[in-house]
Amino acid sequence: MEVQRMHALARPGVTMADRGGTTPERDADFSAYMHARQTSLLRTAYLLTGDRHTAEDLVQTAFAKLYLSWEKVRDQGSIDGYVRRILVNENNSLWRRAWKRREQASETVPDQHHHDEYDDGVGRELWDLVQTLPKKARAVVVLRYYEELTEAETAEILGISVGTVKSQASRALATLRDRAPQTLDPTEHPREEER
């Protein structure tokens, strides 16, 4: 079955609503958490999206949703897991992806390339390939190999079973290996032009 798409992109218009009720203590509590965690979440969001503007927007939305549910989530003692879950779900949101594509069209600032001092170009190629993975597989890769979460923790955040995490990770690694075998072991798989 082919998924159909509406071709044009739009930013649905939303305006500010009335202010929600807040208390200074609540806001101070929330701010402390946000300032402590935002850099880490921004980096994760960047790896999930591959785009800095989108990552910043994603994290802002995640914190906004956390803000709306702050008391409940805080009382449950599951803030980190909750906000990561929002991050992944938001990134998978069909509506949001479309919306963001439009915003990027007019605001794109090329991301800087990051170079590992030990990189021989292979790392960059690997990153390019990570960005071609399906959203959910990429989320597994980022949570497992960047956040270094356990399979169980990853499963909980993604709302899937541990078995699915294992199979998604395995499939993602196989895809990376298959698509660019030369990046993983250049000596065994010389490039075409090097032969």
């Binding site: 935002q38 850099t39 590992d116 690997l126 990153w127 990570v130 960047y146």
Partner: peptide, 20 residues
């Protein structure tokens, strides 16, 4: 290699600070 590259890709980025 993947883990190293993900860290290389993201770890020196601070991002714009969010405000309450």
């Amino acid at each position: 290699r993947l883990s190293r590259q993900l860290h290389a890709q993201a770890d020196d980025w601070q991002g714009a600070p969010l405000t309450l």
